[in-house]
């Protein structure tokens, strides 16, 4: 009992000493908010990042899942945190969309941007026994009657939906004519595809990997400008159809706006070191996530670009406000 109290007092003294000084950031444990639940890609990559930051900066980086509301809750929590560098978070694709969709008053300008570490385009999948052998077959069918092709991949207005809308738009049609079946995420959409209830699934490669290898589904095209390194034979969409694409899911590290510059710099340096390391690349590679680096100002430019591309797709789909 006595020892416990002493320990408590010692801990209180230790925690108080943390204070506001930033000279030797970090001086106490850092909370890393992940706006998505455990089990998803953001959580998995976020935990890798947190572990590696911990190794480099010598203080615990505690991952905290603040889930719900399509990421709004977690992103808001990061934005509203004390900008002292002791609460940071993983920010994701949805941040490029909230404002255009009108679901939340959040943009990348509300954050101190540390670094982009991942970006992955979606891909188009069909069932193994589908009549569509190539992406051209599918494109022809969509041109004939966009309503006849039922596509799914996640929620209405999500990144996969916008990718599909952008593709339909790229074919010279009105993006709003596409037929999107909303589901809660990639997994249920793949389930729908495998059960034969829909024609097309637009999801990312890691989610579809196992079904692909099981021969249940086929990949027709990558919705990006370069082939996926693990699937070099799946043509990128600009090669196959000449449609240029700027929509991709991304993940980065950020904190509330107004973090001290030296703290942001310390984190950006650590992130640069992490992204250059073999262990990070091999872990991301195992999980099939692409590693993309953009630090500080580059990250801001990148997000500026995304905001425009997403905004265009959203207004074309008629979901904006």
């Amino acid at each position: 009992m006595k020892r416990l109290t002493t320990a408590a007092l010692a801990a209180i003294a230790f925690l108080t000493a943390g204070g506001a000084a930033v000279a030797d950031y970090p001086e106490r444990p850092v909370t890393v908010i992940v706006p998505w639940s455990a089990g998803g890609g953001t959580d998995a990559t976020g935990r890798i990042i947190a572990t590696m930051l911990e190794e480099r900066l010598g203080q615990p980086f505690n991952v905290v899942n603040r889930t719900g509301g399509g990421g709004i809750v977690g992103h808001t929590a990061i934005k509203d945190a004390e900008p002292d560098g002791y609460t940071i978070g993983i920010i994701t694709t949805e941040l490029s969309m909230y404002d255009a969709v009108g679901s939340a008053d959040l943009t990348h300008e509300d954050y101190s941007l540390v670094a982009l570490y991942n970006a992955d385009p979606s891909a188009v999948f069909v069932k193994a026994d589908s009549d569509f052998q190539t992406i051209e077959d599918l494109a022809d069918a969509v041109r004939t009657d966009p309503q006849a092709i039922q596509a799914s991949g996640a929620n209405f207005g999500g990144v996969n939906h916008l990718s599909w809308v952008s593709m339909v738009q790229g074919l010279g049609l009105d993006g709003g004519q596409s037929n999107w079946v909303p589901t809660e995420g990639g997994a249920p959409a793949l389930q729908l595809l495998a059960s034969g209830a829909i024609d097309v699934a637009v999801v990312q490669f890691p989610e579809a990997q196992a079904l692909l290898e099981a021969g249940e589904i086929r990949a027709l095209a990558t919705l990006g400008n370069e082939p996926n390194p693990r699937h070099p034979d799946v043509p990128p969409i600009n090669e196959a159809l000449g449609v240029d694409f700027a929509i991709a899911g991304w993940r980065g590290l950020g904190g509330p706006e107004g973090m001290p510059e030296d703290v942001v710099a310390a984190l950006t340096d650590a992130m640069e070191d992490i992204l250059a390391s073999d262990s990070f690349r091999s872990q991301m590679g195992q999980l099939n996530y692409g590693v993309v680096w953009a630090g500080g100002a580059d990250f801001a430019d990148y997000l500026e670009n995304r905001a425009e591309a997403f905004g265009a797709a959203i207004s074309s789909a008629g979901i904006g406000q």
Binding site: M1, L4, T5, A8, P60, V63
Partner: peptide, 16 residues
């Protein structure tokens, strides 16, 4: 005192 302090340490240190 015992309950609160030990819970605090189990949650913040052990369970993060």
């Amino acid at each position: 005192a015992i309950a609160v302090v030990s819970l605090y340490f189990v949650f913040t240190q052990g369970l993060r």
